[in-house]
Design a protein around this nucleic acid. Sequence first.
DNA 1: TGGTTGGTCAACCACACGGTTGACATTCGA
DNA 2: TCGAATGTCAACCGTGTGGTTGACCAACCA
Lengths: 111, 111
Amino acid sequence: MFAALADPTRRDLVARLCDGDATLTELAEPYDMSIQAVAKHLAVLEAAGLVSRTRRGQTRPVHLEAQVFDLMGKWVERYRRQAEQRYRRLDTVLAEMPDEPESHDASKEQR
Amino acid sequence: MFAALADPTRRDLVARLCDGDATLTELAEPYDMSIQAVAKHLAVLEAAGLVSRTRRGQTRPVHLEAQVFDLMGKWVERYRRQAEQRYRRLDTVLAEMPDEPESHDASKEQR
DNA sequence: TGGTTGGTCAACCACACGGTTGACATTCGA
DNA sequence: TCGAATGTCAACCGTGTGGTTGACCAACCA
């Protein structure tokens, strides 16, 4: 999922798909790049579950799977919370720490 | 930033740094990988601003920059909201749509 | 039926990336 | 001062990835 979003072109595709489904040629039009290259990017996004495609006549509209944003939000939130907790722990440790006579050792303890 | 998190080893490093700062050798220990390889991963994380390093004697503790989680959260939230809005728009469009007489075309419209 | 349009498949190429090894710098401890 | 520990730098290597071109398939339209 992160790997799929690592490429700027792919992020741009995702951003544009937020405005609605689109076909391959529509998506490829603004880029200075072959259709096949864009098709490969879409394949990556599809493999990562960020996007789905349905057959409609001779065209294959690309649809953004919005749930992945919820997943990513969860992921980020988990780490954000964990890091925050650690900061709180550090704060209490620092608050409970007696005033060190020698600042030398104190700098070593603090981690 | 996404590119930095694309690698599973790097995500693992970030996860472990949530528990507190650590030195290069500490971080590299659990992996079946050379120290230098881990150092490269850390360099990538540092270039992406996910991590910072300070000199402390002969060791260089690695510190997780927690703000990036806020940034990522913002990013995800923006897209999540946008996609959601689009769904709402689509819903109103569907709601305002007159009942289709021929179920044949209707099945085509249904996406 | 034959063109045209929208996508796909396959082969290829250049380059970035994850990993290695080896040599070197710096700092602490004895 | 010497040795060991901690990191860094540089060169190299295999593979994956982003891109190209060319041929092809499938569906619509005239």
